[in-house]
Design a protein around this nucleic acid. Structure first.
Ligand SMILES: [Zn+2]
Length: 284
DNA sequence: TCTAATACCTGCGGGC
DNA sequence: TGCCCGCAGGTATTAG
């Protein structure tokens, strides 16, 4: 589900409402969703939320008392904040399911503001893990560079490519230890924009192709963040404005449909274990 | 050490 | 209608 732009959208929406709030109650409905299972509730209650940060696709709630709560939404996770009778919604949309809590709610956190935070996940791949600040920092430091940071220069990108010459471009872009934040949507979109087949080996890219890929990754992610990401649902009776990047998608979800550049039908293949859409003719 | 395949889950839509 | 299959915005872990 959510990739960098969608997680960043959640982070921005939530930050305004939860920073400074204190956790007054915690309910765990699926014990394997959280860690540590035994002490989770006890350690959280009474903490104040001091910041909300994003590392790639991971959200980190910093808490006073030297704790950090890491929440990953994986494929189908959502975060919903009940605020003054309405809900603020982020992550993977489930059509027609706006009530909270619901059968996919695994974690409920009540705040001193009266708001309630729900973490839902249909496929249960996601997690909420509580660490000390130091342990959390250690985990996050192993992540690849965030492609939206100013420090992610072309030289850095080139260096990463050199260390993965044998891998497909798709596998390389999806590898969160190289860069963190790209997922299946934005990987395919970046490859199309750069006219590179996702099946190409990273080591076969020309200098010009490397540059084009780098530029398009940044441009696409920036645009997607500005558009609040890619979401297909509308959100009535909520505070949430839907993500509108959907209408900019050139290949993702368009297999068999005409390529917007050459008009021929887009191809679909399995690359690096993921459904992959590309134009056989426009992408070299 | 590197790369690829598999496991983890539930639900949906298409084909028979 | 119901059953079976493949597929879904991710990533630890395992296997080669
Ligand atoms: Zn084309």
């Amino acid at each position: 589900m959510p990739e960098l732009p969608e997680v960043e959208t959640i982070r921005r929406d939530l930050s305004r409402l939860i920073i400074g709030a204190r956790i007054v109650d915690v309910i765990v409905s699926l014990s394997k969703f959280v860690s540590p299972r035994r002490l989770f509730e006890q350690r959280l209650v009474g903490r104040r939320i001091t910041s909300l940060k994003r590392y790639g696709k991971l959200l980190v709630f910093a808490l006073d008392g030297n704790y950090a709560l890491q929440v990953h939404l994986k494929m189908t996770g959502q975060i919903v904040l009940r605020h003054k009778g309405k809900v603020l919604f982020g992550g993977h949309p489930i059509a027609g399911l706006l009530e909270v809590p619901n059968r996919y709610t695994h974690l409920t956190i009540s705040l001193s503001t009266g708001d309630v935070l729900y973490v839902n996940d249909l496929r249960q791949f996601g997690y909420a893990k509580l660490f000390t600040t130091e342990d959390s920092q250690k985990i996050v430091s192993r992540f690849g560079i965030d492609p939206l940071l100013p420090s992610f220069t072309f030289a850095v990108f080139e260096g990463l490519l050199k260390k993965a010459t044998g891998r497909t471009v798709k596998a390389f872009l999806l590898d969160q230890s190289k860069m963190s934040g790209l997922g299946n949507i934005y990987t395919d979109e970046s490859c199309f924009a750069a006219s590179i087949k996702p099946t190409r080996r990273a080591g076969t890219l020309t200098g010009a192709e490397q540059k084009k890929l780098y530029k398009n990754i940044r441009a696409i992610l920036k645009c997607a963040v500005a558009k609040r990401g890619t979401t297909s649902s509308t959100y009535e009776r909520t505070y949430t404005k839907a993500g509108s990047y959907t209408r900019y998608l050139k290949v993702y979800g368009r297999a068999g449909k005409p390529c917007q550049r050459c008009g021929r039908p887009l191809s679909k293949a399995r690359v690096s274990g993921r459904g992959t859409v590309y134009c056989f003719y426009c992408q070299a």
